[in-house]
């Protein structure tokens, strides 16, 4: 399964995830409170430089990761223009760009296993109140393994449909797909049970 982590190693990768998340949280709170346009522009420029420092290829990758959000941003700006609050819209857009590009930087420079390890650490205290959180890592792995499987099943169902009909299958594939997923869930449950009993 693909992830949004950068293959280009940067100094940011060496920072502990918990620090990066703390910086992100503090920056978000501060940026949304700021109203000074000059400081906001300086912060936006700083964000651009932070993304540029590891090299132009890293910057291109960051822009590619952020590109799906661009249409929504344009929509928000147009909405503000339409309602007669263009300046307010532009200030908001700058705030979003700062926060979202910093969040993207954290995502790109933090390994998935580090993030999962952090979550496992955070939920550990729940054991004290009787909640079994030992299966968390297994559950993450199961989802990541199952998505490509389900997409492959969808592709096959799509071919089967097209060999019989000229119409697009659309929502009609969802019911057989759910049946496959439910069958798979029953098999996975058996496998987990077998593994647990083997481990005593």
């Amino acid at each position: 399964m693909l992830n949004l982590n950068s293959p280009i190693k940067t100094p940011y990768h060496r920072l502990p995830v918990v620090w990066k998340l703390a910086i992100l949280s503090i920056t978000t709170i501060v940026v949304y409170q700021l109203e000074n346009h000059l400081i906001l522009v300086v912060l936006l420029l700083a964000m651009f430089l932070l993304n540029l420092m590891p090299g132009i290829n890293f910057l291109k990758l960051a822009i590619r990761n952020l590109s799906p959000i661009i249409p929504f941003m344009v929509f928000i700006l147009l909405w503000h223009v339409f309602t007669g609050s263009t300046v307010q819209g532009m200030v908001l857009l700058v705030k979003f760009m700062i926060v979202i590009s910093l969040a993207n930087l954290v995502t790109m420079t933090s390994q998935l296993d580090e993030m999962i390890a952090l979550i496992e650490k955070l939920v550990k205290p729940l054991r004290k109140i009787g909640l079994d959180v030992s299966f968390l890592g297994l559950t993450f792995g199961l989802v990541i393994r199952s998505v490509p499987n389900l997409l492959e099943i969808t592709r096959r169902l799509n071919f089967s449909w097209r060999s019989r009909s000229l119409k697009r299958p659309g929502w009609r594939l969802i019911f057989p797909l759910i049946c496959f997923a439910l069958d798979d869930a029953d098999h996975v449950a058996e496998a987990i049970k077998a593994r647990r009993s083997n481990n005593g």
Binding site: L151, D186, E190, I192
Partner: peptide, 25 residues
Amino acid sequence: MERNIAYIALFAALTAALGFIPIIT
């Protein structure tokens, strides 16, 4: 327990997979 874990994980995966299927264009 095992059944719950499997169903929760598979439904999370199913919801993710549904994001790649256009139902209406």
